[in-house]
Design a protein around this nucleic acid. Structure first.
Lengths: 167, 167
DNA sequence: GACCTTTTCTTGAAAGTTGAACTAGATAGA
DNA sequence: TCTATCTAGTTCAACTTTCAAGAAAAGGTC
């Protein structure tokens, strides 16, 4: 299976296939694990929890919808639905943006903040036990580097945002 | 934030937090990327594609539902829905299991196999470009090891399946 | 201002996922 | 055998995600 057919499709080496399978395996188990943990302890899926965390770290605990969507790596549509749900729970509220009448700010409520404070320790502990408790310091460092490389490669790039002279 | 409050909740170090963010970032971008790639080129989400791959590698291209669910790390319920959909596409069919009247075999059809053959090269290429083309051989090796450790830690364990003497 | 394009956010329907409830068949013990 | 329990798989309802479409405001350009 490692054979390279010149011109034809290039497959993965046996080692690469093994790594890919391990990657898929580990990441799906991790996501399932955290989804269940948070559904049980915080009553929401992992993504929603991530939204609250983002808001909690933003100045004045609020953020424009589009910016929040970008930070959390989800579509604006998905965010609209998510915020609607979190609003029903009382953890987030919306407010019109004063400077742009199209805009909306999503705001973490006190209830939302309290819920976060309550569930954060358990969640951190779950992450630690699933990942950091099992890896050597060297592996942690290496994992960080690898994940940053992969993310950079998949990032929409936002071309010439940093290269205005190319316009 | 690196401060440890003895007895209180233990947080992550700054480095661990950074690694965790990079991990979430990279894995969600990767999953989105592959989902879109396969939806576009094969007309199905990544998970469904994975089911076909599993079947294609099984003896006689068939597998019991429960076993398939276990291999693909999804619930039996999710698999039922997925197979129903793949059946509509003509890529999979079901057959009663002869030895166990409760049982069903999911079988990869010729059409399904053809579709897989058609879309595999593009998918492999997407995986290569997103991951292996960007990592050094040493990083690939390291990633494999790390992912295996994490997966092992999250695995349901299946206690004493390998330890029958403990019964 | 009038016109065109872009951006922001929401909506609605279709597709996918989850967890619990349920049916039917297998299994084990009295 | 009769009964209780377990396993395989499906189904239902509630929820989440996606995609395409749309309303409203902003930002040009003439």
């Amino acid at each position: 299976m490692t054979t390279a057919s010149p011109g034809g499709p290039r497959w993965l080496t046996d080692e690469e296939q093994g790594v890919w399978r391990a990657y898929l395996h580990a990441t799906t188990l991790m996501e399932d694990h955290l989804d269940r943990q948070l559904q049980r302890d915080a009553g929401m899926p992992h993504v929603y929890y991530g939204l609250l965390v983002h808001l909690s770290q933003a100045p004045r605990r609020r953020k424009r919808m589009t910016e929040l969507a970008k930070d959390a790596k989800i579509t604006r549509s998905r965010l609209s639905h998510a915020v609607a749900r979190l609003e029903k729970n009382g953890w987030v509220r919306r407010e019109d943006c004063p400077s742009d009448k199209r805009g909306q700010n999503a705001i973490l409520t006190d209830e939302g903040h309290a819920m976060l404070a309550r569930s954060a320790p358990g969640h951190v502990e779950a992450v630690r036990q699933a990942m950091f408790a099992r890896l050597s310091p060297e592996q942690v460092r290496s994992l960080g580097e690898i994940m940053r490389v992969i993310a950079a490669g998949l990032q929409p790039e936002d071309t010439d945002a940093d290269l205005p002279w190319l316009r």
